[in-house]
Amino acid sequence: MPREFKAPVNVSPLIRFGRWSFLLLGVTYGATRHSYLQKKEDKTKETRHQKIAEREAKIAMEKKKFAEEEIKNLDIIFNPPKTVT
């Protein structure tokens, strides 16, 4: 059972027209703006992904180098070169 309130008011046709036209205007605006922004990002997509890949490769290389050096230093600490006494 729907609750009983005041009887529905006849809203002025101008207001209803305004509501619906603004709604449709907003839908078209949102869709066109979304596609515009998406296209803008798609243009720079390749360069961005390339940059990210380069950066990650560089970081991985540095990490590897650092690990190797660390192992070398540890090796020196744990197996000190024999010194002549």
Binding site: L23, L24, L25, G26, V27, Y29, G30
Partner: peptide, 8 residues
């Protein structure tokens, strides 16, 4: 209503 439409 414009912003409702934009979200849609």
């Amino acid at each position: 209503w414009f912003y409702v439409g934009e979200c849609i």
